[in-house]
Nucleic acid binder design. Structure first.
Lengths: 207, 207
DNA sequence: CCTACCGATCGGTAGG
DNA sequence: CCTACCGATCGGTAGG
């Protein structure tokens, strides 16, 4: 029994330490991407913030792009976890509002990595990253299903193609209006979320 | 007469050459800012694209930030010119839709410099740039007036503070949804503009 | 011997 | 206006 079970916690402990360190790294990268974006974030900064040597960082991730991609995979996982946590019985429109509200709260908390710019090296790296694409597809499929049902039951506008609605929901996760309003200081975070949520779902025109 | 008029075209010619060069520089910077953003745009790239030496660039603009600020001032001027060109008799809501449509067309044409990120050196430079702040204020005041009238006459939702509406309109100028839909290739530029315009003014919820 | 990690420095390139 | 070049800092990796 000892000869069988003894090595297990040994390797498990090592692997656990490794994973804990990687989680700390990715969490730091996530925060820095939210604060300053991919181009302005430096690898030295990441290492210093985690409290390890830069060379140690490269033992875990082979490049700066891979570092950022891991953070993008993490936020996609968190998003999917949130989607899975929503009551299945809720109307699709309620769930869609809930996820947009959640992404805005994440952004206001400084935990939403900003999308890479069009001609970024990160963009190209993400488009070749299977783990990221799989997660993105998973979230898109879940949201896409809800959008179609919401349009079918009349809660959501049927004038708009589902893909346009999907992109619009994604874009709200990095809407600069949230930051502008926060800097303005006139409204609380909760008020900002509800205001932008209203512009998104109800529109600017009077109803 | 000659002694009076002769020197005028001489200095005017020199100044005209200077201004023409500066306009060429700023136009190039504007395009590059739209393509890749401030952090990824290099000064060497601007010089090469304009067709002058990098050192010559610094004869006109003292820093990379000033180069970018000149492009931001230029787009603000273009925006104000467009606002002034709108028929004064048009309802405010019509004019607000027109300006959002115009900014989207500019973005799709690759001529809308993307907003600097939160913790960018450019952001700080712009906040200390009188010319930029004056232009921004001018555009904001014009739009702000129209928003108030549109809310008073019932065309625009009165639930939303005017400042939220103003920021939302500004944010549409750099909405990533346009680029995503363009990359998707399913819709023409004109269709993309009308679709996103609908999400902005009518919202995602059915009416 | 291995792993994990460090101080120091690599080749290139940024803004100026 | 250009060629040449700087202090610094970038992403990434050497040896120990």
């Amino acid at each position: 029994m000892n000869t069988v079970t003894a090595p297990v916690p040994k390797t498990s402990f090592k692997a656990q330490m490794l994973l804990a360190r990687e989680e700390a790294i990715v969490q730091t990268v996530n925060r820095l991407l939210a604060e300053k974006g991919f181009e302005s974030m430096t690898v030295d900064e990441v290492a210093a913030s985690v409290g390890i040597a830069k060379a140690s960082l490269y033992k875990h991730f082979p490049s700066k792009e891979d570092l950022a991609a891991a953070a993008m995979v993490r936020i996609m996982k968190r998003t999917q976890d949130f989607l899975d946590s929503l009551p299945a019985a809720d109307p699709p429109m309620t769930k869609l509002r809930a996820v947009v509200r959640w992404t805005m709260e994440v952004q206001l908390a400084g935990e939403m990595p900003s999308l890479p710019h069009q001609n970024s090296t990160l963009r190209a790296a993400l488009m070749n990253n299977r783990a990221y694409l799989d997660r993105l597809m998973e979230v898109s499929n879940t949201l896409g299903g809800w959008i179609q049902v919401a349009q079918a039951d009349g809660a959501m506008s049927s004038k708009l193609p589902a893909i346009v609605v999907l992109y619009t929901l994604f874009a709200r996760a990095c809407d600069p209006v949230l930051e502008f309003l926060k800097v303005g200081g006139l409204y609380s975070d909760a008020q900002i979320v509800e205001l932008v949520l209203s512009t998104c779902f109800d529109g600017l025109a009077a109803r």
